[in-house]
Design a protein around this nucleic acid. Structure first.
Lengths: 340, 340
DNA sequence: CTGTTAGCGCATTCAC
DNA sequence: GTGAATGCGCTAACAG
């Protein structure tokens, strides 16, 4: 039925080992013989069995990618970009969607990637226990976004710097009552919300503005959450004239809430997001842009390098550039709304 | 280094085959022995080598998923949903991103999934040659969206019916100059744009409205394309009072173009999309909703069924339900704009 | 119910 | 430069 290496060997009149060497481009095969073998293999439609090959060699030519939700724009984009780099290098990608706590737990206790991948890219931040489990795999590891972990390469951005320019932008426009839509760090263990929040506090302090807890609400980094959080802020006694949303998705929710309240953006309220979501441009959202696909590619490259030079290439940390993108949702506060 | 089945066997005082049977839940192992083996395996942190196991059994416990762009919302959502179903059934997912013509061609000529997956889910429509290549794999096959293919299960929606209710909705509101943002069928071989377009023509004819080529523009199913196409329509001598965008992404682009032209939606122009994109609700877009995750799950289930009952379960075709979602971008035409 | 025996298809020594 | 052994770790008959 399925054609094996011995079939090719027989048809080409050589031994299986020669076929193996020829097809993988290893030295020790004369040019004419190699050409002949390649021709025969193509004609027979031969592909080496991945199982047999990796059983014999110990290498799988496969990379594992674990992610909370492939469906979300950020993760989908990163997976997309990293997959392109991996496949261009001849690696296949095994995808694990670890959205729910149960699947996540199951993954880390059973570790289905063991003996199945040559390297692993994580788009979720492992806690210490999970990190230890991954290290036990004894393969190159990389994580995107958030806290450094021993033994992992890390690709990310400077969240504090990004949030700083976002909030400073609002301050520079003249805003003094600046709200924030934030998110919880747990249970995903990521440092992003912590750092973006700290930057907000730092800029306020720096500008001599008081921190008012009533101007902060948890939007859970989702559109609906952002809408809810914004609604909360609007219900407060002291409405903000500008809002820093820690993610574009929350900013979009906020825009919706503002529309429902018949408030004009940016006339009545300015909104700035974070991420530069693919649709941020469509809705004219001012935001902090980060290279999303770029982070996926970079992480993939780091892993490939470690795969190429075993031992020689240690884990690295790479910080990608960010920048403020001015669009249509921020403006100076309306003087009529100004506090005296 | 890595613990193998014989290590477990030795530690448990049994043979390797008994370990194999016990761990895979096969009959023929007494309960106490099974329990003991499970305990030892857990303690040693044993996981069967996928390569060895599939080499010996012929089954890989892996499903291949091929997709043009995981990063796009529609595909990402489908991949997400199908992966959950597969992994719940104990299958891993190999992801192939076949966006560019070169990667696509390379995939179909080399067929890296050969001997590597037990079934394949395609989110792109194979042409006849590609379909033949996949059939040669001799495994269960499924395709989402678009034309039926011999030997494939197909999951999709009735594009003609969906587009019909979209356009009819505009007609019922009283619109008579209805534009369309469409997309080319090639080079992706999908029937979607063809069917949605035909429905547009059919409804117009049915309503006694003339078809005006100046009211149709190609938006390539993307946001930017939609914006360009809408701009084109607005430049024409006879502006539409309503527009049917064949995808929500194009509709979003259209909204942006309208905003740039200082035209109000829906007062000046109504817009209806198709898909019910996750952000359609955020921007209040009226659209035709289709179950995106649902299609991924359904296709996954069809494949699993074929895997469970080899031979018994033939390929199937499933049509998922759709419905009109009324939001804020459609309304009767403004009488002031009405033609006499 | 359990152990023994053969491969699965390939990569990798080691000879020649 | 090429071929003949050997084994990767497991599953699937076959015995008992």
């Amino acid at each position: 039925m399925t054609v094996s290496i011995t079939d090719v060997a027989r048809a080409a009149g050589v031994s299986a080992s020669t076929v193996s060497r020829a097809l993988r481009g290893r030295p020790g095969v004369s040019d004419p013989v190699r050409a002949q073998i390649e021709a025969v293999a193509a004609e027979l439609g031969y592909t080496a069995s991945q199982s047999a090959s990796s059983l014999a060699s110990g290498r799988t030519r496969t990379i594992g990618v674990i992610v909370p939700y492939v469906g979300r724009w950020f993760f989908g984009t990163v997976v997309d970009a990293s997959e392109r780099v991996f496949s261009a290098a001849g690696y296949d990608v095994l995808l694990y969607n670890l959205g729910s706590p149960e699947t996540r737990k199951r993954f880390f206790t059973r570790l289905p990637v063991r003996k199945r991948v040559d390297a692993l890219l994580s788009l979720l931040i492992p806690d210490e226990e999970e990190a230890a489990a991954l290290r036990s795999l004894d393969i190159p590891l990389a994580v995107i976004v958030g806290g450094a972990r021993d033994g992992f390469s890390v690709v990310g951005i400077d969240d504090h710097a990004g949030a700083t320019s976002a909030v400073r932008h609002l301050v520079n426009l003249g805003h003094r009552r600046i709200g924030m839509l934030s998110g919880a760090s747990e249970p995903l263990h990521w440092t992003t919300p912590i750092e973006r929040r700290q930057a907000y506090l730092d800029v306020l302090a720096d500008a001599g503005l008081p921190y008012d807890p009533a101007l902060e609400a948890d939007g859970g980094y989702s559109v609906e959450g952002g809408e809810r959080a914004m609604t909360e802020l609007l219900a407060g006694r002291s409405r903000p004239t500008a809002v820093f949303a820690q993610s574009d998705e929350m900013a979009m929710g906020a825009l919706r809430a503002l529309r429902r309240h018949r408030l004009k953006v940016p006339d009545d309220v300015s909104v700035i997001g974070f991420d530069d979501h693919e649709l941020a441009e469509v809705i004219g959202l001012t935001t902090i842009a980060q290279p999303v696909a770029g982070q996926g590619e970079e992480a993939a490259r780091l892993l490939l390098r470690q795969l190429d030079e075993p031992g020689a290439a240690p884990p690295r940390q790479v910080q990608m550039p960010i920048h403020l993108v001015l669009r249509e949702t921020t403006a100076p506060p309306d003087p009529r709304h100004r506090s005296p």
